[in-house]
Design a protein around this nucleic acid. Structure first.
Lengths: 349, 349
DNA sequence: GTGAAAGCGCTAACAT
DNA sequence: ATGTTAGCGCTTTCAC
């Protein structure tokens, strides 16, 4: 069924049908009602491709989840406690604004081509990109398309440096530095001096911020951080488990560990438990992200809460706004994080 | 940049550009190379809407996750251990086949309108629907659209009854009855006679199958199931926790509990722990779905593994096949489930 | 082997 | 207030 069929059945022209569909003001109520009746009776819906070709928007937002790190793992993104809630909130929010969501996962540079194609082929009006590692080339490639996009968790300085602060771009971040500093200060105030860190991927904005915050906060308090107490866990539980186990076995044991995310804190807890260490008796552990299980563990994990809901909502609202009003100007927001004190940290013995 | 621009730059006609893009055989290698060079140099990608309007497919699959149950809960689908892996695998598989995925969550009948619109507006070539509760009306509405769709976890008998076994429809199920029966038999063989069940939503295909299997298996073994031992948990952890707690407090305590999903088994474990009951010493618990945490709990949860990966892959391959080859014929697959014995079940005292 | 031209279903500027 | 018409960018018959 096409608009012409509706026109015929309603005894009007296609233009009038179009006017009714697009809510033009100059259609008398009577005509509108007549046309609407036919439309509803026939369950008519205008063909999206035709509308787009004639100048309307697709009413679709692209949501791209970049996960170039754990290609090998079959369970990757949605079971990932970091990405899942972002995806969920963004999809729901965008849906509620009457937009559809085209979702695509990116595990390689090849997949990344698909992101560019989605824009170039005009499948989407704009896109949200999450999990992007520091990569001026890729961001530049996106910016060149001159279509609205929002980056979640990306280094603004990096963008400015490469003059990528375009009018159709926006960045939504959380205050990871602040949150990590809070957690580390908390440990220091408990009396810890030998604090280790399990860092995440450092080419990720949040990963680097959390790492820097740790280093600088320690320094501010005049505390040393021996190299062997900096563990690289790549945000992955298993990796952290292995690193922590190795550290503990080596005998060079810190009194506390700050982990760049909760998944790795879980890995650390696994290692401690295996070696018979009490948490927080023998060693304190603090995480980041405050994933749902954090509160359900025993002992419950002290962590830094990420404002995922606020960030997702902001990203969704922002991209839709940009799509509808055209570009505004380069914009940036950082949402505050919050230290959630639970049971995994105590004074050192 | 449009195909006409490419044509001009390459010194050919738009038809030839189109032939190159669509891999027509009657284009000499030389012409093809010349055109391809211009296409690549200019990062040209054909406009999807125009292609669709001219008769090509959208190359997009709709993925609709129906969750009419827990509207009130802010964290719903992706953090839901049942839906998340389906979504993940389907998106990845469909992407790998060169298709895009339009994802939409459905929390109400109103949202359901969006599903129909996605089909009617020709935004998608076909759709996968997951989490659909028994609802002939809705399925009928989808079937009326006469476009390919796959239902994951739906009662085939219901479809047949309403003559909804259309050529463009398919159903992918798991053998939930078999799996539940295995779990219950296992408990019976351990010596349990007073077994309770925490049932899920019974208007869900899998929910009902698991429930029926429990009842019938008990009956086959000549075991009574007093009404008060059938708990309704709606697949929700908190609900199960409350129901189980109430049951245990009442003193009418079963020696074992079979839960229709792991989330509820977790809730049951919470309740037992709170009341100081040992698992499996005082009470045995078996779950369903084998979600990732099941193996990490202590004691590790005995559960029935759902072939989510296989089901998702089958759904993805099937829908793409239907979109490309046109309708085949009504098809149906059921993947086997598997009992994973861990530590939460033991002989009754 | 390649080009010209019609047409996919819609919107919007123009005409009345 | 409503109809007529010219595109939007592509694919595809039909000619040559």
């Amino acid at each position: 069924m096409r608009s012409e069929d509706i026109a015929r059945l309603a005894g009007v022209s296609r233009s009038t049908v179009s006017r009714v569909i697009n809510n033009y003001s100059n259609v008398p109520e009577k005509t509108r009602a007549k046309v609407m009746k036919v439309i509803e009776e026939n369950h008519y819906e205008p063909n999206t491709s035709a509308r787009v070709l004639a100048g309307k928007g697709m009413n679709t937002i692209g949501l791209f989840v970049i996960s170039t790190a754990d290609k090998q793992n079959p369970n990757r993104i949605y079971q990932n406690n970091y990405f899942a809630p972002f995806v969920e909130t963004i999809v729901d929010t965008v849906n509620r604004m009457g937009y559809y969501v085209l979702i695509h996962t990116v595990y390689s540079e090849d997949d990344f081509l698909k992101v560019k194609q989605a824009f170039l082929q005009k499948r989407i009006d704009g896109g949200i990109i999450i999990g992007m590692e520091k990569n001026a080339g890729m961001v530049h490639a996106i910016a060149k398309l001159e279509l609205p996009f929002v980056l979640i968790d990306y280094d603004i300085a990096e963008l400015l440096e490469h003059r990528l602060d375009k009018d159709y771009a926006a960045v939504i971040n959380s205050k990871d530095y602040e949150g990590a500093a809070m957690a580390v200060r908390y440990l220091i105030e408990l009396g810890h001096e030998h604090i280790g860190m399990i860092s995440g991927r450092l080419n990720t904005h949040s990963g680097r911020q959390r790492y820097q915050a740790f280093l600088e906060t320690m320094q501010e308090h005049g505390l040393e951080v021996p190299e062997e107490l900096i563990l690289g866990g790549e945000f992955i539980r298993q990796k952290a488990y292995e690193e922590v186990k190795q550290l503990l076995v080596s005998g060079k044991r810190p009194t506390a560990l700050f982990s760049a995310n909760d998944e790795m804190a879980l890995g650390a807890m696994d290692a401690c438990r295996e070696l018979g260490l009490q948490i927080p008796g023998d060693i304190s552990i603090a995480g980041f992200d405050d994933i749902p299980v954090a509160s359900q563990l025993s002992p419950a994990l002290t962590s830094v809460r990420l404002p995922i809901y606020e960030m997702s909502q902001a990203a969704a609202h922002h991209i839709v706004k940009m799509c509808e009003e055209g570009s505004t100007s380069f914009s940036t927001v950082s949402f505050p994080t919050q230290l959630i004190v639970r049971e995994t940290c105590a004074e050192p013995k």
